[in-house]
Computed example of a mutant assay.
Amino acid sequence: MKPFRRRDFIRGLGAVPLCTATGLAEDAPSSVVVDTHLHCFAGQNRRFPYHPRAPYRPSSAATPEHLLQCMDNAGVDFAVVVHPEPYQDDHRYLEHCLKVGQERLKGTCLFFADRPGSVEKMAPLVQRHPGRIIAARVHAYAPDRLPPFGTKELRQLWKTASDLGLAMQLHFEPRYAPGLEPLIREFKDTTVVIDHLGRPMQGTPEEHEVVVRWSRFPNTVMKVSSIPDQNRYPHRDVKPVIRRLTDAFGAERMIYGGGFNAAATGESYRDYRMHVADLLSHLSDADRRKILGGTAAKLYKFNGS
């Protein structure tokens, strides 16, 4: 996926109404809303079993049918199903979700640089679903499940995704950011999506500053998702972090995600988005609209954007 530029967004967005005082014009039909981060699970379903290497196994199902109902009730137009770790590189349930969701859902994929034959499965998956797989995800947060930093194998995974037109989606603790930076530099024409604010509370402010400085790379996009709870360790306020990130990346390179799970309702799903909007209250109405959907719609080509 080619990096996303400010001029591309401005050319493709078009006019949208002003937000309300509470955060955004959530019911305005021309204000597109895109949730770029959610997981679907089949639960204990023999048709879609969890992988033998699954690091966790949710017992409750979070189905695409439930997702679409919540989207309808919460005013979410499009969404990205992020293929979760319990399925590892078995994408059958993701493919089921894409079939159910049709044009409203796209997905990410998960393959492993250090497992023989895994990366080779990426191209057939992408080719089976033209335009529907938008990113390949890399995890670097569990010490026993790190990618092979600095190897030709990790570079080959990155190159394979890039050649297929995918973004690289990074989920990591800040202490592992230096191991990923050389590939961000090398593949400068590949969009890099940074999950969950770069996990600021899973590292020191100094470690997270490395992630903030990635804003100097024009191919990076920051995701406002998995908002940390100030009442939990390390009890740091996330608002200054979000302010720092919006100053660094700008609304044209920020997207939002989250709020859906097995227990979600339309009301709870909408409330999560309103919480994100409140955390972005220092921005203009137009910039909040970009982060809550406009930027992602253009980046991931939803609805022909």
Rank of each mutant, 00 (worst) to 15 (best):
206 E>G: 02
182 P>H: 04
197 L>C: 11
150 G>A: 08
212 V>Y: 11
182 P>Q: 02
183 L>M: 09
170 L>Y: 14
205 P>D: 12
194 I>V: 15
167 A>T: 05
159 K>R: 15
181 E>T: 14
201 M>K: 01
150 G>T: 12
191 T>H: 03
200 P>M: 06
149 F>R: 08
169 Q>D: 15
175 R>D: 03
169 Q>I: 03
209 E>G: 01
188 K>A: 14
183 L>P: 00
188 K>T: 07
207 E>D: 08
199 R>A: 14
209 E>A: 13
194 I>G: 01
166 L>R: 07
165 G>M: 09
151 T>A: 12
160 T>E: 15
208 H>G: 13
174 P>F: 00
166 L>H: 07
178 P>L: 02
171 H>Y: 13
170 L>D: 09
177 A>T: 04
196 H>C: 06
212 V>T: 15
185 R>F: 01
158 W>Y: 15
183 L>K: 03
201 M>G: 00
187 F>G: 01
181 E>L: 14
160 T>A: 11
159 K>Q: 15
165 G>Y: 09
151 T>R: 12
188 K>R: 12
186 E>C: 06
195 D>M: 07
149 F>W: 14
165 G>R: 10
193 V>M: 10
206 E>H: 04
180 L>V: 06
196 H>I: 04
180 L>R: 05
183 L>C: 01
180 L>A: 05
183 L>D: 00
195 D>A: 07
160 T>C: 12
194 I>E: 01
183 L>R: 02
157 L>N: 08
182 P>W: 06
157 L>P: 06
154 L>H: 09
197 L>H: 13
172 F>E: 05
211 V>D: 05
175 R>H: 06
198 G>V: 09
193 V>Y: 00
193 V>A: 05
165 G>A: 08
176 Y>V: 00
197 L>I: 12
